[in-house]
Structure formats: structure tokens, C-alpha cells
């Protein structure tokens, strides 16, 4: 992992009506680093990656990627810059085959760090099948493969582990660690702290749109504020 900053998030604010979904979020992610973004439901984790991926425009704050300001750019521009993501609900292109789902991405992006994305996620054997016929676990893997096919240098992972079996979880964790060793940075939004623990020790805990903790996972488990939002007093 390099100490060169890849993504710098500064005082990011996003409101929906009167509700502050993100309230001054600040952090830095380095090249090849994996960072967990955890917190209870409604804490602003998914909103945060929606803003980074360009799906939402921030109300204020700054986003710098490889030293360039990118806040508020459209999703297609973010993807071309090298920021891609998976979704909580994968929604593949159901009428296209698994291979076509990847080919669609390859139509503009020819360079990937990990070779054949389908091979990498283990879906090569179902490449000819319609994506709509895959199991939900396979659809999640296809979503990951589709994001990888665009050759990202930053991958935003939104609750990839939800709905996967324990053996699938181990397998996915191993794949994500492989990605990091090949220089792809990962920002992992996740509920399952055990899964995050397999990937990284560096986490940010969010609550009500604010960061309440940044540091290693073991310390987070002892932090009073974190215990409070997870377990209540």
C-alpha cells in the first residue's frame, strides 16, 4: 500500500429536505488501501458512496481524486476517472447474458487490472446464461465483475456480503484482498463487522451522517460512542 492519497473527502455535506444525511464527513483513502465504512442503518454510509460515485451531488464539501477536484461530477465521468462501485441491490442487465453484462462495460473500457473479471469472480461457467437467471449471490458477484471490468482504481463496495453464505463470504473477502494487493483501493460499506475484520483494520464508524470514530476495528469495539450507537445505553 502506498501512502499517496487517492481519495480525499473533506467536510462532505448532503441534505435531503431538512435531513442531513451527510454532515461534514472527512477522510482520506490511500492507494491500495481497504477502508471499512460501518454504522447502523440510516447512518449515511450508502449516501457517502452515492456522492463519491456521482449519483448524488454534494451540497458542500470537497472531493479530490488523485489530486483533482471531482465533487459533483456525473456518474459516467466518475467511472471514466477510475471510480466504480457495486450496489446494495445488484440489478444486473437481466436480459443480457452474463458475458454480455461484462462486454457492455468493455465497450468503452479495455484495461483491467485483474484479467477476465468473470474468471476472477468465478462466474465463467455461467457466462452464457441470462443474468436474470442467476441466484442473488451470483448476481452480487456479477455486479462486482461488472464494476471491475471498467478498470477502476477505486472500488466502492456497498453491502456486498449481505445474503452470502459463510463460505461465499470467505471467498469474496479473499478476492477483495487480492484486488487491494493489485493496487485497487476499496471503500467497503458493510453491516457485517466480521466480514470487515477479514478485510481491514481501518474503519470509519458513522452515525446520523457524522463520523463518530476513525481508527482500527478492535479499538472501535471498545469505543463508548460506537458501543452506544450499536447497542444503545
Amino acid at each position: 500500500m502506498s501512502r499517496e492519497p487517492l481519495l480525499e473527502v473533506t467536510n462532505l455535506v448532503k441534505t435531503f429536505g431538512g435531513f442531513r444525511a451527510l454532515d461534514g464527513v472527512t477522510f482520506t483513502l490511500h492507494k491500495g488501501e481497504i477502508m471499512g465504512l460501518v454504522g447502523p442503518n440510516g447512518s449515511g454510509k450508502t449516501t457517502c458512496i452515492n456522492v463519491i460515485s456521482g449519483l448524488y451531488k454534494p451540497d458542500s464539501g470537497n472531493l479530490r481524486f488523485l489530486g483533482k477536484t471531482i465533487a459533483g461530477q456525473a456518474p459516467h465521468k466518475m467511472a471514466r476517472l477510475g471510480i466504480n462501485r457495486t450496489f446494495q441491490v445488484p440489478k444486473p442487465f437481466r436480459e443480457l447474458t452474463v458475458a454480455e453484462n461484462i462486454l457492455v462495460v468493455h465497450a468503452t473500457n479495455k484495461h483491467t487490472e485483474i484479467g477476465d473479471p468473470l474468471e476472477f469472480v468465478g462466474l465463467k461457467n455461467v457466462a452464457h446464461r441470462k443474468a436474470g437467471s442467476l441466484t442473488s449471490g451470483q448476481q452480487k458477484l456479477l455486479d462486482l465483475a461488472r464494476a471491475l471490468a471498467s478498470g477502476p482504481s477505486l472500488l466502492l463496495i456497498d453491502e456486498l456480503a449481505a445474503g452470502l453464505s459463510p463460505s461465499e463470504l470467505d471467498d469474496v473477502a479473499e478476492k477483495l484482498l487480492t484486488l487491494a494487493t493489485r493496487g485497487i483501493s476499496l471503500l467497503v460499506v458493510e453491516h457485517l463487522l466480521g466480514f470487515v475484520n477479514q478485510l481491514t483494520q481501518r474503519v470509519i464508524v458513522m452515525n446520523a451522517g457524522k463520523e463518530i470514530f476513525e481508527g482500527d476495528l478492535a479499538s472501535a469495539a471498545k469505543d463508548e460512542r460506537v458501543v452506544e450507537v450499536y447497542l444503545g445505553r
Binding site: 449519483l55 436480459e95 443480457l96 457492455v104 465497450a107
Partner: peptide, 24 residues
């Protein structure tokens, strides 16, 4: 053609096509 594949993709899900880098 690849262009046709992209059209089918955006017919199914515009936001996903956007996220993959297409200016729909």
C-alpha cells in the same frame, strides 16, 4: 454491435449504465 448492447443495457437500467461510464 457494442453500441446496440449498450442500448439494451440502458433500456434495462439507466442508472447502472451511467455508473458503468456511459453518457446515456
Amino acid at each position: 454491435s457494442p453500441f446496440g448492447e449498450v442500448l439494451r443495457a440502458l433500456r434495462e437500467n439507466e442508472s447502472r449504465a451511467k455508473a458503468l461510464g456511459y453518457r446515456i
